[in-house]
Design a protein around this nucleic acid. Structure first.
Lengths: 418, 418
DNA sequence: CAAGTTAAATCACGGCCTGAAGTAAGCCTC
DNA sequence: GAGGCTTACTTCAGGCCGTGATTTAACTTG
């Protein structure tokens, strides 16, 4: 039941502002004329809305271009310095905080390793807050000009009720369930709110990276896609009709624990036969047996090197991995019927070049013919560092959706009265 | 990228009409006052829009009720006889056509067995057209008052480009790929259009039945759910945010061919290890070995009877079936994070009462704890005949979405000029 | 320098929702 | 049983919105 809610003329304007701003953001440098042609809005409205956007400082003129024999077109673009975005990656080994302008150019970053205290919640919160202060102070950025902070964490993020505080969607109420880092119902939003007034957006790191691939990487242009993330664990970000699909409580996309052999190998989740137990980097390194003392990354690199050197055991293991990945990707194809499957994650990017042909072949043989023909399987383009960029897209998405409504921390009452 | 498109004040009114009509349809018999309270629209607008809806004959007054000490509330309801809907079920063994009023009360039905000609396309088309004529003529229903014909077919339905004919969404351009009935890219919409002017809506039968369960059955009230259909084959209808999820080319939800054992039993789809090869009714009957001469339905009933009579072989087979179903439902839970899983289909309803506890236990043991706790697993309430009701919901959904815009066959030009 | 051409701004118009003021229709009390 | 009270609904002015025709701006060409 799509209980669409009522609308008023104000929503209409906000929607059309959003359409224009969004188009300008992604297509960049267009004239008012072209904007009208692309969006279907009349010239009058374009002039009117663009005038508003320029007055608000969200859009600026950017030169002009001849139009054979007539008045030149004035090009428009989103003002990159109108606001700033912060992306935070709470990863397995470090906390990374990066400051971006609206064009997602990285202006500053701060990395803090996590080795000593593990994922103790208080410590992580402190690192995040320290990181925020660092990137803001080092660049002299005014806190009022930060549109929001996006935070990607490993684990399921249950979003808070947006009705509780509409000016801060998904922030303060977010609760994190991170099995692998021993976070059980951690109210991360509330904890961070105690240390900062900036608008917060918390989400699962896989969804974050997936969104980055969709906006700027291998998923660009697809409306329905699955970004499969292959690292120590295995996850996925499902994009349905252009937005990450969350499900009832935001835990959709837990691909790593779908079954490839009912009753098979024991998985770290406690169940048996999970995909992750066969092809997760941790499982692979363990199964290969060697170099178990060094890091997972080094172990996997060694496995790959051995296979490249024609070690038959390593080769067989990688072939099997491709078979399982392909079969499980076939499940994704059958269930989601995506236009595209993007394989990302550090392990995916490491093994991808070697495994991709075998994965494609396995997927083709296990999936139904019709949906398989509609899908292409690609490697991700962005690398695992893109989690921070993806995190920054969370407040950016809100900014674009709202048509450029800028949340101003500490001045919420003033805005409400306006 | 959610490229929302521009809106004009007209869209606004249509949207609000739709909100009201929809609310009235599902909640029924409300006063203007309550309507305002529920939807958030102001009293002025309610009066205005309801007046319009009454003038259009879409809504009627239905008595009044005291309001302690004040003017009584006038109750409103959707006028059930304002329009008619037709649902068509192209099943494995028959073509069923049923005529409904807007309240989905069945007014007439026509059944034609398919035994002799199989699924020859021309024959099926003729049966559908005959069925339409029968139900309309037997009730003396004016064709102009039929809002649309929904058709559920076994197979993947690729929807046509709605831009091609906006007055007839999903109808004329629909192409059916039905592996099990040997339909390869059948342009069913075009073929039917040659024989009738009624607005057509063609979709997969599983999606159709799923929508019926969501609107009127065990899925009622859930926004994210999966209706698992367990018959000769195995399928699913995924409901995301209240609407059936289609994917890129409408083939999403092919659950029956996800893997439970990579490289396992051969499936009729040609691949190995599919769920359907283990628990589909056809597979079950074949594996049980007995009574293979009679129908699938009788075979499955015999299997169940044997298990009830403590036949150890039958019991073991059913236990294994529950294990596989549960494990595969766990995959659905992990991937889709639904509020509810509904098990339907004739085999599901037949075996469900006996298997449900075991299925629930298996799902719990194979799924991740968090999403599993958010989900309930229920049996469907509607029975397989509900495919026709579900099919009729296709034009009904269009009717409600459009705010009661009535397509008038043969008078399209007139409407366009208005 | 005038005519032609294309881009953008302006403005009257009809449509929309809101919210306040007005009206209808029943009850209660004196 | 008459006036007052309560609640439901209707009407209407006011402020926005997008459209599309008209006007103004800016540059090229002959």
């Amino acid at each position: 039941m799509v209980e669409r809610s009522k609308q008023t003329v104000r929503d209409l304007r906000r929607g059309n502002r959003s359409v224009l701003l969004r188009h300008l953001y992604f297509e960049g440098r267009l004239s008012r004329h072209e904007l009208g042609r692309d969006t279907g809005l009349s010239g009058g409205t374009i002039s009117n809305v663009v005038g508003e956007l320029i007055a608000d400082g969200l859009v600026e003129e950017a030169g002009s271009v001849d139009s054979d024999g007539g008045r030149p077109r004035v090009l428009l673009q989103v003002a990159a310095d109108r606001g700033f975005l912060i992306g935070v990656d709470v990863g397995e080994t470090q906390v990374r905080v990066a400051l971006f302008d609206l064009a997602l150019t990285e202006l500053a970053a701060s990395d803090h390793p996590l080795s000593d205290h593990g994922h103790d919640v208080g410590h992580v919160v402190q690192l995040i807050l320290d990181g925020l202060a660092e990137v803001l102070d080092s660049t002299g950025t005014d806190r009022d000009r930060v549109l929001g902070v996006g935070i990607g964490v490993p684990g399921i993020v249950e979003q808070g009720d947006p009705a509780a505080d509409p000016t801060d969607p998904g922030g303060i109420g977010a609760v994190v369930h991170g099995q692998t880092i021993d976070w059980d119902a951690v109210p991360l939003g509330r904890l961070l709110r105690a240390g900062t007034d900036l608008p917060l957006h918390i989400d699962n790191g896989a969804k974050t990276l997936g969104q980055a691939e969709m906006w700027f990487g291998a998923g660009r242009g697809a409306g329905n896609a699955v970004v499969a993330l292959f690292g120590s664990g295995v996850g996925a970000c499902v994009i349905a009709n252009g937005v990450p699909y969350r499900g009832a409580t935001s835990s959709a996309g837990e691909w790593g624990h779908t079954k490839v052999h009912v009753g098979g190998r024991l998985c770290r989740c406690g169940s048996r036969g999970c995909l992750e137990a066969y092809v997760g980097a941790e499982a692979l390194v363990e199964r290969w047996g060697e170099a178990s003392d060094s890091s997972e990354k080094a172990g996997l690199a060694a496995l790959l090197a051995a296979a490249e050197a024609d070690d038959p055991v390593a080769d067989a293991l990688l072939c099997e991995t491709a078979e399982y990945l392909g079969a499980s990707i076939a499940d994704l194809i059958n269930l989601f019927n995506p236009e595209r499957i993007v394989i990302g994650g550090w392990a995916g990017l490491l093994l991808g070049p070697r495994l991709l042909p075998a994965i494609r072949a396995a997927a083709r043989s296990y999936a139904l013919r019709f949906p398989c023909e509609q899908t292409s399987i690609e490697l991700g383009l962005l690398g695992p560092d893109a989690v921070t960029v993806g995190a920054a897209t969370l407040p950016l998405a809100r900014f674009l959706d709202s048509g450029g409504d800028v949340p101003e921390p500490g001045r919420r009452e003033a805005r409400a009265l306006r």
